[in-house]
């Protein structure tokens, strides 16, 4: 009740603790090869935690991407290499595969203004074109689409990545406290230390298709 009294289970995280939490998180990820890495921005001490997930999809989903410049493309030479094309089939055989792959990138950044971690993500095709949110969702299970529309996930926006300067989708941190507070308070009541990144990512990750294996909750400790 008293003003100035701060709950021990604070929803805020200073940057140092963020880094420590990330380090522990990354250690476990490395041990199970979950694919998380720390991406350091060249020439600065800033960085973020990153994971890339590739998912094969029906190629029809990605057809749209080619429509736009294909018209202009028709003039591009495709005949120059007929000789080579013959080589490919005659000389040394190559297997033909048709690939449609979606690449999901998840970035965990520290937000100084909110003093909590923020999840950025984008999905792209193998040629680098980012997908619109509709395209992302059209590839998402309907149940989970429904969930995404429900609170507290009504906070998705398109934002420039603060370190990369490229457009990303972001789960706005304004409602993080809402779901972190009960989790942290419960842990506090049970005298249990939790790694903020693990608890937080386990909640926000699945909403945007990011799985956080259960072993993170059991194996990753909180920084001292």
């Amino acid at each position: 009740m008293m003003t100035g009294e701060r709950k021990p289970a604070s929803c805020f995280l200073d940057e140092k603790t963020f880094r420590l939490c990330c380090r522990l998180f990354l250690q476990h990820s490395e041990s199970i090869q979950d694919g998380w890495i720390w991406e350091q921005i060249k020439g600065s001490d800033e960085g973020f935690m990153k994971k890339t997930v590739l998912i094969p999809v029906k190629s029809s989903l990605l057809d749209k991407q080619h429509e736009s410049i294909q018209a202009e493309n028709t003039e591009l030479p495709t005949d120059d290499f007929e000789a080579d094309a013959e080589d490919e089939t005659a000389g040394v055989d190559a297997v033909c595969e048709s690939h449609a792959v979606l690449r999901y990138e998840y970035h965990v950044l520290y937000s100084c203004s909110y003093q909590i971690p923020v999840l950025y993500f984008r999905a792209s095709a193998l040629d680098g074109r980012s997908l619109s949110l509709e395209e992302v969702w059209s590839n998402v299970h309907p149940n989970y689409r429904q969930r995404l529309k429900q609170e507290p996930w009504d906070t998705l926006t398109q934002q420039e990545h603060p370190l990369l300067g490229q457009p990303f989708f972001m789960l706005h941190p304004c409602r993080t406290e809402e779901f972190m507070k009960p989790a942290l308070e419960l842990a506090h009541a049970q005298n249990r230390k939790v790694n903020y990144i693990v608890s937080w990512l386990s909640v926000v990750g699945p909403v945007v298709g990011l799985d956080v294996p259960l072993s993170f909750s059991t194996a990753v400790s909180a920084p001292d």
Binding site: H66, I69, L76, D80, F81, D84, G91, R129, S130, Q166
Partner: peptide, 29 residues
């Protein structure tokens, strides 16, 4: 003899292209 030029998305020998205006053109953004 050597080979190696990648086929395009139509499976033919030809270049690929990608339109990134949606994520790079500030107006489109």
């Amino acid at each position: 003899k050597s080979v190696g030029w990648e086929k395009n998305t139509k499976g033919a020998m030809g270049p690929r292209s990608v339109n990134l205006s949606e994520c790079m053109d500030p107006k489109r953004l």
